[in-house]
Every structure is written in C-alpha cells, then in structure tokens.
Design a protein around this nucleic acid. Structure first.
Lengths: 204, 204
DNA sequence: CTCTGTGAATGCTTTCACAGCG
DNA sequence: CGCTGTGAAAGCATTCACAGAG
C-alpha cells in the first residue's frame, strides 16, 4: 500500500506518544487522546490506524502496548537503526549526544568532519572520523542513516558520498534541497524556513 | 484569504531560494527551476504564486529580485523579527550563533536558561539571562518569536511564559505538542520524529 | 515561440455519520 | 452506552490543458 507523507508523520508521532504513555504505565488510550497529543482529529487518527490494517480495539480504547507494537511493526520502527552525522559543527556535535535518539531506537555510531582540528577537540563518547573514511566506516558498521549538518554548499557532495557508501535514508539539516536517486528516503529540516513559516502567519 | 500550510511552506522555500539566486546575481528564474529547487512541480509553484495574487511575469520567467520583493511583502518576510531562545543546552547554544538566522531576517536577541552555571559558562556575543527575567526582557526588547529548546517536560511551561510575555510565534524543538491559544503561531521540529518518518519508509 | 496565469478536472485527505462490538 | 471501524460525502490540493502576453 502507498502511505501518504502526512499519514506517516502522524502515525510516527502516535508511536512516539504511545512510547511515553507506556513509560507512564498507561494501559488504554482513546483516539481522542491520541489526536490531542499529536494535533489532529480523532477521525483522522482512527482512519490512519485503520488504513494500516490495524483493528480490534473496540470499546475501551486502544491498548497502549499492543497498539505501539503493531504500529512499530507496520512502520518498521521496532528495528534499531544505526546512523551517522556528517559535519561536527555546533549543531552536529549537539546531535551526537542527543539522548532522545538513543531512547527511540536510533543509535548514532559515528561522526565525520573534514577538519582534523575539530575531530581532536571534540569531547564525546561516540567515535569520530575524518570524512575520507566515510565509505569504510559506513560499510564496516552497517550504517543505514545519514544526518547531514555541514554548510549548505557541501551538502550535496556529502549526500552523494553517503549514498555511495550505502546509506539509504538521509536527514538533511541544510537549507538546500538535495538531489537523490528515487530509492533514497530523505527528510529536510530547515530551521530558517520553519521561522519563515511562522513569520508568514503572524498577523502584524 | 486563507493559505494552506503546504502553500506557505513552499512559498517560504521559494523565497529562500530567490535569496540565494539574488546573491549570485541571477536575474530571471523559471517556475521549473524554482520547482526543482524546492522539490515541487512547476504547476504548483505557478499556482502558489498566482494564489498570492502575484502576476506579470509572462515570457522570460520570474524576475528574481521583483518576485522576492513581492513574496516577501505577501508573506511578511521583509520585516526583521526578533527572537529569543529558551534552553541553552547544546542545541540551544548551537542555535544562538546560527548565522543563517541573522542573514535571513531573524535576529536572536536573547537566550534564557534556568541554570546560572550554564549562563556563566556560555561564550557568545548574544545576551543571556536567567528564565526569571523572560517577561522583562521580552517586553523591553520587543521580542516576537520564541524558540524552545528545553527538555520536553518543561516545554509547556516555557511556552506559557513566552506567551504571557507577549511572544506571538513559537518554534518548538521538543517532541511534545504544546497547547496554545488559537492566535499563537506554532511550528514543531521534532528530530526523532523526522528519523522515524525516514525509517518508516525504508523498504527493509 | 516561450513561459506564465488560471479555470476546470482530477485525485487525495479529511470529515462525517453511523454500524458494530463488547 | 462508549469507543472503534469504515464506506460515503465533502472539502482541498494538485495537475492539466490551454489561453494570453510579449
């Protein structure tokens, strides 16, 4: 089945929320509560779940643990994924130690930068390498995801290198759109554009 | 007129791309080029622009400078906006000095954190304050935008404080959805969810 | 002839209304 | 009853096809 981006984003959020409910030992949750937690309507949440062929929760709401399990299966979120970060400026190093990734099934297993100086100065428990070793390390460690935090002018080259090395998903923090082969999954997070979107909606 | 989120996001990206073209002294750009740069179709770009009542570029493409000017006017992106950052952990401090914000019409004019220790250790040219001063500083400096980079459990409280202080737009980096009055504009950037969205689309 | 501008058509998504289950 | 599950309806967004402008 072909799932829309919106549906994927919403259900991934639901998955994340279920995770926090699970940690609080909540047993059941209604479509209404889920909707509020992710900023959607209850209709949409139910429809999304139904489109993923997940059913059987009549009467008392969704079972937190069970729904999380099923969503995880459908969305392939149960598998732990290894990721690397290219570009160890302030943002890159901040992400290196971002604990939330680890908690949520993503493990940052390498950082890369072109500056040997930077590599030597960085204090982190994650292994860092010069970019020249990208292919080797990604191969060895079987890294599936690449996070790009280099300046925009290098983003395309880094993406090409990552793909050559075998990465299949890319999270791009630079503001330029990267050209990629069709089979590579790609999400862009552009801080400045996020601020622009806010500014564009301010009334004054 | 009521503009959809998608339209706003796309046209904001167009605006950003026009800015880079302008810096390269490009004079004209076609809807096709804009489309490629932002990952959309030429139809959509033309329709978006048309929906903003911007016309008059028949024949040789859009004039870079002129279109940027008009888009900026329609999207209120010509005005410089002041922003502050609450939560000066690694992400917050990385954003404090993120030059791209300044280039693009956003000026970070204050940082806040609850830890006096952290405030003393931070090396930046931007003024930093304890969170107890949020209202005072936001009032004084007439700050319109708040960027939230505190741990999720404090995000709602911080948002409430920002709104009480008069901020009208919020960029939230925590993974929880914040409850806000209707008139507050709000965008969420959740890194983990972005990775989830990628993982959910990987075939294996 | 090229590239925008835009009504009309298509195709998606979301919403609705209500059946069904326990 | 309460809350899910889901076909059908409504509402939007995107695509198309082509008119229009220089």
């Amino acid at each position: 089945m072909e799932l829309s981006n919106n549906l994927i984003e919403r259900t991934c959020k639901v998955f994340g929320y279920l995770d926090t409910l699970e940690k609080k030992d909540m047993e059941f949750v209604s479509s209404m509560d889920l909707a509020k937690a992710i900023g959607a309507t209850a209709y949409t949440v139910r429809k999304d779940i139904s489109l993923l062929d997940i059913t059987g929760y009549t009467r008392k709401g969704y079972g937190v643990r069970a729904l999380k399990e099923e969503l995880g299966k459908k969305l392939c979120l149960n598998k732990k994924r290894k990721a690397c970060i290219v570009g160890l400026g302030r943002l890159g190093t901040a992400l290196l130690d971002y604990e939330k990734f680890q908690e949520d099934g993503f493990k940052i297993v390498a950082g890369f930068d072109s500056s040997i100086n930077k590599l030597e100065r960085i204090r982190t428990h994650i292994d860092v390498y010069p970019v020249s070793l990208i292919k080797e390390i990604i191969d060895n460690k079987k890294i599936e995801l690449g996070i790009i935090t280099v300046p925009a002018e290098y983003a395309q080259d880094v993406a090409d290198d990552l793909i050559k090395a075998g990465v299949t998903g890319i999270l791009n923090f630079s503001h330029i759109k990267i050209n990629l082969p069709r089979h590579i999954i790609n999400v862009n997070l552009d801080f400045t554009n996020a601020l622009r979107c806010i500014a564009a909606q301010l009334t004054d």
